[in-house]
Amino acid sequence: MSAATVAARETTAHTIATGKSRDRTPGSLIFLIALWLSLFFGIAVLTVLLVDTAIKGLPRMDGNLLTEYDSTLFPEKHGFRAGILGSIWLMLGTALFTVPLGIAAATYLEEFADNKKWYNRIIEINIQNLAAVPAIVYGILALGVMGLFGLADGLVIGGILALSLLTLPIIIITTREALRAVPSEIRQGSLALGATVWQTTWRNSLPSAVPGIATGTILGLSRAIGEAAPLVMVGIFVSVRFDPASLTDMASALPIQIYGLASNSQEAYQQAANAAIIVLLLMVLGLNALAIFIRNKFQRSW
């Protein structure tokens, strides 16, 4: 009888005799409790934050909040129409700009680039680093570019530029991860049938990576929609009293409006700010839900 068999039999005999599993020793229980506490801490903070915001903001969740512009005279009629529309403009513009660009860049790096070449290595390292750059730095960069073209502060295009710079590295990195998760056997199988690298990428790798790409893209966008810092840099306005209609219109954004109200000590404005946070959270949660839906719908296993 081998040592392993002996050990297994002893364990079984011990469990039967005492009715206790070795998985329930004091040491392992303490460890388990520590794990639970860590989890509890994270969830507790989030819950307190959400509940607090909800209590303060819910009384102002009315039609005015969504349909009215901001008002300095009638706090109870203060609305976030400009901010919500501005955020939607920024998000759609960012998506249109970054999704094709990000996927194309990632596809080149993952499927076509020879990663032994020094210039491809430099590009790779830089993209990794870009994802860790503080958001406000992108704001400064976007501001510089806007100035270069002689464009004014606070335009939709400026916000889109800043948020795109912020989102692009995230989309590139997640798309590369998704492409890398496609087994190389699939590519080899395609190439062995006489397909070109381009056909293999277009017909096999990219379709297989769609769930990962979509999830990463949406998560990147939902991070961008909540950003205020880069938008402050490009001068997105706290208060705009018309709907943006083109890329060169002045615009506001929801996070900026919330930020603008935070310094206002009137109770009614604090309430409105909390209500706006709920709206922003709902937009972000909606995007995340979409990401989860896409991931589950197209999920496949190899």
């Binding site: 199988g189 062995a192 056909q199 190899w302």
Partner: peptide, 30 residues
């Protein structure tokens, strides 16, 4: 070369497509 000399691999590697599309893949791409 690969259209004349085909290859079958160690681990079965069908594409994540229908059975029909798996077979039609080669004729389509070539």
């Amino acid at each position: 070369v690969r259209t004349h000399i085909g290859m079958v691999f160690q681990k079965p590697n069908p594409f994540p497509k229908s059975i029909y599309d798996n077979i039609a893949y080669g004729p389509r791409v070539t």
